[in-house]
């Protein structure tokens, strides 16, 4: 009787078996997604840019501020446009009015540890489907965010 064996096995032993079993499909899925996931950082290296790099790009850059509106109004990178997740639906049309495929979008939030810029950049790529004239990615996240930009001002 299979059930009697189950009853006798301790809960911890059963849990360990389940924990081990779950690794098998995980491994298969991880192999399937191996080239689609950034394993070391939330953003892949090609999606992050430094302040120096953006300055080398010249004028065809559209700074995008993903911080809350109050912080944007207090101070922001000259020429930056506000686009945060709090007012996404209202701000996105204003953003798209000013964007053109020849412009590179650089999104920033408060500091290295914030996620807002990564989320806004992701939504611009996936929802608004922003791409440059060659169909390549044109949305980047500023490494270090606003804090990093202040150091170079």
């Amino acid at each position: 009787m299979k059930g009697v064996g189950t009853v006798r096995t301790s809960a911890i032993r059963q849990a360990l078996i389940l924990i081990t079993l779950a690794f098998l499909p995980t491994l298969g899925e991880a192999i399937y997604f191996r080239n689609k996931v950034s394993w070391q950082s939330r953003l892949s290296a090609s999606e992050v840019v430094s302040v120096d790099q953006v300055q080398r790009w010249g004028d065809n850059v559209m700074w995008t501020d993903a911080r809350p509106a109050a912080e944007f109004e207090h101070d922001h990178i000259p020429g930056a446009i506000l686009l945060n997740e709090d007012s996404w639906n209202e701000l996105l049309p204003l953003f798209l009015e000013q964007w053109s495929p020849d412009k590179r979008v650089v999104v920033y939030c408060s500091a290295q540890s914030c996620n807002a810029s990564a989320e806004v950049a992701r939504r611009l790529r996936e929802e608004a489907q922003l791409k440059d004239n060659q169909g390549k990615n044109c949305v980047f996240v500023l490494e270090g965010g606003w804090e990093e930009w202040l150091k170079t001002r």
């Binding site: 059930g3 189950t6 096995t9 809960a11 911890i12 059963q14 849990a15 360990l16 389940l18 924990i19």
Partner: peptide
């Protein structure tokens, strides 16, 4: 299913 039932509940 009831197989590894208590282990499942524990996790």
């Amino acid at each position: 299913c009831g197989l590894f039932y208590r282990g499942g509940l524990l996790i």
